[in-house]
């Protein structure tokens, strides 16, 4: 019923709006609304410096959410994000303690450790057919255990390398933080992979119906495996960036990224059941979440209030446009 009414109105709109996903449009509308509310609260909210700073903070979440999106498109979920982030950060910092070679290889080594976690997830989901939500929780616990043993339960003393700090906080192009450039590059690569390669099409196919994808000759297990490996690697890379930003790694640095990364992807209109969603939506979701966090911290909301508002907003927005069809 609503299909026809929306269609009737939409036919009179320009083509680019008609083709856009209503969820993505809603997300962008919410961003504008948040910016408006923020500007009422403080004049400096719309200044270019502040907005650029927000974009820089958003890029850490953006990198992590990119991997999460790939996994959610498959109809799976990656709950190992918190400790993949921490492992990436800690291992990169740890490598830096091993002489010049370690310093040179710090960033790749951090990402490599994340990829390893992702591969374990991928083997579990694709080959052992364990529900992704369970195996990723388990690998998260194992990664945490390994890091606790490695660090002795304290935050590690090694600090980030110059390269890591440069990647996270430096400026190669004047005025644009490097982190934003990196998010843009990763995002562009993701859009290319999703829309222009057979791998990307397979991801959407598997998300819609894995059985059908398998019968049409896609090596579904390999695709799932690669997707989880990429997700683990990107989470770890997010961790490396965060470590560069804070100039060291910390025990629970990844905890704050699990819910936001899932929320960003889902608020951006990607179906949690898989098979549907665009990267533009994820970008909108990431910016939306970052702005929400920023406004709450500008208002000096204590942690408790932030958690509550955060959960309520996510449930409310999902109730607006993320509902599953009724059974009939």
């Amino acid at each position: 019923m609503s299909e026809t009414t929306i269609g009737g109105i939409a036919n009179r709109m320009p083509k680019f709006i008609r083709r856009a996903d209503p969820a993505v449009l809603t997300a962008f509308a919410c961003i504008v609304l948040l910016l408006f509310l923020g500007s009422l609260y403080s004049r400096s909210f719309l200044s270019p410096e502040y907005l650029l700073q927000q974009l820089k903070v958003a890029s850490f979440l953006g990198v992590i959410a990119t991997g999460m999106m790939l996994v959610i498109l498959l109809g799976q979920i990656d709950l190992s994000v918190p400790w993949s982030v921490a492992v990436g950060a800690m291992m990169a910092c740890a490598a830096a303690a091993y002489g010049p070679l370690g310093v040179a290889l710090a960033i790749p080594f951090g990402i490599f450790c994340g990829v390893l976690i992702g591969i374990v997830n991928g083997i579990g989901v694709a080959y052992l057919r364990i529900p992704s939500m369970i195996i990723t929780l388990a690998t998260n616990a194992v990664a945490q255990g390994l890091m606790v043993v490695y660090t002795g339960g304290f935050s590690p003393q090694d600090s980030a390398t110059v390269a890591m700090r440069y990647v996270a906080t430096g400026f190669t192009i004047p005025g644009v933080p490097n982190a934003v450039v990196i998010w843009a590059l990763i995002g562009a690569a993701m859009v290319f992979v999703l829309t222009r390669t057979s791998f990307g099409r397979s991801v959407y196919g598997i998300g819609n119906r894995e059985r059908a994808a398998y019968l049409s000759g896609i090596d579904t297990r390999r695709v799932v495996m690669i997707a989880f490996a990429v997700s683990g690697g990107l989470s770890a890379f997010g961790g490396v960036l965060l470590a560069g930003y804070a100039s060291k790694a910390a025990q629970s640095m990844g905890d704050a990224y699990l819910l936001p990364s899932i929320a960003a992807v889902v608020l951006g209109g990607t179906s949690i059941l898989g098979g549907r969603g665009s990267y533009l939506g994820t970008v909108a979701g990431v910016i939306l979440i970052t702005l929400l966090q920023s406004i709450l911290s500008v208002m000096q909301m204590p942690e408790a209030g932030r958690q509550i508002i955060y959960g309520v907003v996510i449930v409310a927005m999902l109730l607006l446009y993320g509902r599953a069809p009724a059974s009939r």
């Binding site: 819910l259 899932i262 204590p302 509550i308 959960g311 993320g322 509902r323 599953a324 069809p325």
Partner: peptide, 29 residues
């Protein structure tokens, strides 16, 4: 939320979990 709101249990309970934790933190900072 899961049944009548028809949302996925994973996302819903992660989000409501954040709310419950927030309330717990209000009660016992």
């Amino acid at each position: 939320i899961v049944i009548y709101g028809r949302l996925q249990p994973i996302v819903t309970t992660i989000a409501t979990g954040a709310v419950y934790f927030g309330i717990a933190l209000l009660l016992r900072p």
